[in-house]
């Protein structure tokens, strides 16, 4: 048990370390049982499923590499893979760049009250019906939609924005931008103001102090924000499907297509496992970068 002050040690009723502590176990066990049954179970089963066979539209438990070799030999799989990876990388770069000035302003240029309100407001959309917001963008960005009608009054357009990469990226920004701003703002707010002031006093220009002082100090938070952005974009199917036109499909759309229409669950599992491995690799690389101590200059 945790160490307590000497006084409490003499009390009869102090909970002691028992071999079988029913109190402790009744708080510890529920989540272990639940997550093993319904989180680890499904994930492990999915990995196993990628080796199953499908015969006459029925899945048979087996250990064959057919699905893997089938998927890896198809060009469309690799097209999807590189498209998804490129889009997610672009999304991460754009979201981080777009968010940074806003996070910087929220962290350094506004009062704490304004910052609290801004964060309060930005947390709301993150938990609010992404699907309906994408439908909204679909209508706004359409050929005869609201944005083109607005541009038309300035004598511009019409532009094709749906079924393009631009459309997909607008969708990704809808999903990720609020979260990235929130995480970046947290990271920047935690910086010791004295260090920024010291740089300023020593004659550091504002832009140089951002690059040389603020960004290194907030590095961990900035990278974690980017990582979340990558994971969310990489796994999202709504934006590339509705705003991007899904030609070629991204990996999440490939999962849906092979699951829903083809009954080819094992092949969908192959795609899912490949996605998982990619994300785990990216996550470890990002975290290693985030927590690497800087070499002294």
């Amino acid at each position: 048990m945790t160490s307590r002050d000497p006084l409490t040690h003499q009390v009869a009723n102090k909970p002691t370390r028992k071999l079988f502590d029913s109190f402790a176990l009744s708080w510890r066990l529920p989540i272990i049982v639940w997550q093993t049954l319904f989180f680890l179970g499904p994930l492990i089963f999915m990995v196993a499923m990628s080796f199953f066979l499908v015969k006459n539209y029925r899945m048979q438990e087996a250990f064959e590499f057919v699905n893997w070799s089938k998927m890896f030999s198809r060009n469309y799989f690799w097209d999807s893979y590189f498209l998804t990876f490129t889009l997610a990388t672009l999304s991460t770069a754009i979201a981080s760049l777009l968010a940074f000035p806003a996070s910087f302003a929220l962290a350094f240029k506004v009062s704490p009250a304004v910052r609290r309100w801004a964060l309060f407001l930005l947390i709301i959309p993150f938990f609010t019906s992404y699907l309906v917001r994408i439908f909204s963008w679909y209508v706004i960005l359409a050929e005869s939609g609201a944005l083109n009608a607005l541009l038309d009054t300035f004598g511009l357009g019409p532009y094709t924005m749906l079924n393009t990469k631009f459309g997909t990226l607008v969708g990704y920004m809808t999903l990720t931008l609020p979260l990235v701003v929130v995480l970046q703002t947290f990271a920047l707010s935690n910086i010791d103001r004295n260090l920024v002031q010291a740089a300023h006093n020593l004659g550091c220009s504002p832009f140089r102090s951002i690059y040389a002082v603020i960004m290194p100090l907030a590095k961990t938070g900035l990278i974690v924000a980017a990582l979340f952005c990558f994971i969310l974009s990489f796994g999202d199917f709504v934006s590339p499907y509705y705003l991007g036109g899904s030609k070629p499909p991204t990996l999440p759309i490939l999962i849906i297509d092979t699951t829903k229409s083809g009954q080819q669950w094992p092949r969908a599992a192959v795609v899912a496992v490949v996605m998982m491995v990619t994300l785990i690799t990216i996550a470890f690389a990002a975290l290693a970068l985030a927590y690497r101590t800087r070499a002294s200059r």
Binding site: R28, Q35, F39, L40, I255, W265, M275
Partner: peptide
């Protein structure tokens, strides 16, 4: 504090970091 506490916490906290579409396929199959 107990042994494997970090594994315990990982088991609890990981689900939101896994893409929903993957969880969806895994849940459907399971």
């Amino acid at each position: 504090r107990f042994r494997f506490k970090s594994a315990y916490l990982a088991l609890v906290l990981l689900p939101p970091t896994i893409p929903l579409i993957i969880m969806a396929l895994a849940m459907l199959a399971w």
